[in-house]
Simulated assay, not measured.
Amino acid sequence: MNLQDFLNANPVDNLTEDVSISPRFKDEKGNPLKFTIKAMTPGEFEDIRKKATQIKKGKKVEFDNQLFNLSIAINHTVSPDFRNAESIKKLGVATPEDYVQKVLLAGELSTLVQKINELSGFDVAMNDLVEEVKN
């Protein structure tokens, strides 16, 4: 198999993984409850980045890191469904963003976003790439 065949056989638009983000999430038997996440495509990443970037007066660029992270979590978590209208209503919040902030601790959200980023290919350190090129 050559690289072209590999790429054709492994598209990234439906790449998912089950991950554990916190010891807080356990079933009644103490087994970890896992989140199902999906990878971001380059286009999805760019859309989220643009949504979180605003140009203010004087061409000053502001990046909303909280909106960026919430958007990644909401758009790339398959299960649980942070957009579930019944769950949003049940907790008395108005938006998926509010819901995520109501059900996840700050560190849990950070870990979830980190896992999504890793699945999306942002886990390879520059030193690892340099070593790979050398070999």
Rank of each mutant, 00 (worst) to 15 (best):
D81N: 14
L119D: 00
T53F: 04
D128Y: 06
S22C: 09
Q114F: 04
V124Q: 14
P11M: 11
I88S: 07
L15E: 06
V103Q: 05
T95D: 09
I21K: 03
D98M: 07
A106S: 13
F63A: 07
G92M: 14
T111Y: 01
D128P: 02
K56Q: 15
T36R: 06
P23C: 08
F45W: 06
L129S: 07
E62M: 08
E44K: 13
N65K: 15
L119Q: 06
F45L: 08
P80Y: 10
L91S: 05
R83S: 09
F122G: 00
G30E: 12
D47S: 10
K51D: 09
N84K: 06
Q114W: 09
S71E: 03
P23R: 02
D13A: 09
R49D: 05
M126I: 05
N65I: 11
L7G: 07
R24Y: 08
N10D: 07
G121P: 11
Q54T: 10
G121C: 13
N2R: 00
Q54Y: 04
A9V: 00
F25L: 12
T77N: 08
T111P: 00
F35N: 00
S71L: 03
R49M: 15
A9L: 12
K90A: 13
A85P: 02
E97A: 10
L91E: 13
G107P: 02
E28L: 09
